[in-house]
């Protein structure tokens, strides 16, 4: 366990060092992502000049929803960049390089990229989340703070799983990959709004098939003491982490299938 971890940091460190050769580019990207992505939330602010609450959620509560999903998403994005870039690896025919090394391929792709430039997106998420918590005047005990951290980790694992699945599809198709954006980018956009505003079929897909509602919606209901409009059992918020981990596990199994497919077809 220790040895792969230290190798991981060594490889990631190498990646960061080579990116730091383009320091100014990093700063420009950071500012672009930070200021640019927050515009999404500014849009929500504009909508709130015309209404008191959205689907029963106040602006402060919306900031909380937005902040949690965006933070989980951007952290996943930073960590799992290797899978985000993976279609490019396939396109350039560079996957062979990983197969001739005596290490697990999942591990190798995970440690092949690291995207500090995406820290900008995480920064604006932290800013909005912080503002939300401040407006909400939360007076939580340690168990709720712990649960918040737990929820963010779960969300990160969930999006990481989706990015793995996204990357793995490139063993079969590169062209149609954009459809997966529905679940990754579409997922985080959807999760920044309360689930009850969407139609039933759409909601059901994102509760029961792709457990997006568990990323932040159900946990937020619990943390903010809001009643569940769907009357689902009270333990739903606590299923968040296990279900999110399941998505990552499915991603990893799918990855194995993908690698075997590559090995039999040679792409």
């Amino acid at each position: 366990m220790i040895e792969p971890l230290s190798l991981y940091f060594r490889l990631i460190g190498a990646r960061v060092r080579s990116q730091m050769q383009y320091k100014f580019s990093f700063i420009a990207d950071f500012i672009a992502a930070c200021v640019g992505m927050i515009m999404e939330f500014v849009g929500v602010l504009v909508l709130f000049t015309h209404m008191p609450a959205l689907g029963g959620w106040t602006l402060a509560q919306m900031a909380f929803l937005y902040g949690t999903t965006e933070l989980a998403f951007s952290l996943a994005n930073i960590l799992i960049e290797g899978f985000d870039q993976f279609p490019e690896v396939i396109r350039r025919g560079e996957f062979d390089k990983f197969l001739i090394r005596p290490r697990n391929t999942f591990f190798q792709i995970l440690s092949s990229e690291f995207a500090p430039r995406r820290i900008g997106r995480a920064t604006q998420a932290i800013f909005v989340l912080g503002a939300g918590l401040w407006w909400l005047h939360v007076s939580w005990g340690p168990e709720k703070w712990l649960f918040l951290v737990w929820t963010l980790l779960g969300g990160m694992v969930f999006y990481a799983g989706l990015f793995v699945i996204h990357g793995t599809f490139s063993f079969w198709t590169i062209e149609a990959l954009e459809t997966m954006n529905i679940f990754t980018y579409g997922g985080t956009t959807m999760a920044s709004y309360p689930m009850n505003i969407f139609s039933e079929w759409m909601r059901n897909i994102f509760i029961f098939i792709i457990p997006l509602a568990f990323v932040n919606y159900f946990p937020a209901l619990y943390l903010l003491d809001k009643p569940d409009p769907f009357g689902l059992p009270g333990f739903m918020p606590f299923l968040a982490f296990p279900l999110c981990s399941l998505v990552l596990m499915i991603g990893m199994i799918f990855w194995r299938v993908g690698v075997r497919h590559y090995q039999s077809t040679g792409n």
Binding site: S25, V35, G36, M39, T49
Partner: peptide
């Protein structure tokens, strides 16, 4: 040298200011 970073910033701001995120009439 880093026109790409500047460009990304420009594109993202344009998304909002062009009325893509929310209609300008709502502003």
């Amino acid at each position: 040298v880093d026109a790409m970073g500047i460009g990304r910033f420009a594109y993202l701001t344009m998304t909002f200011m062009s009325g893509f995120t929310v209609p300008v009439a709502y502003f």
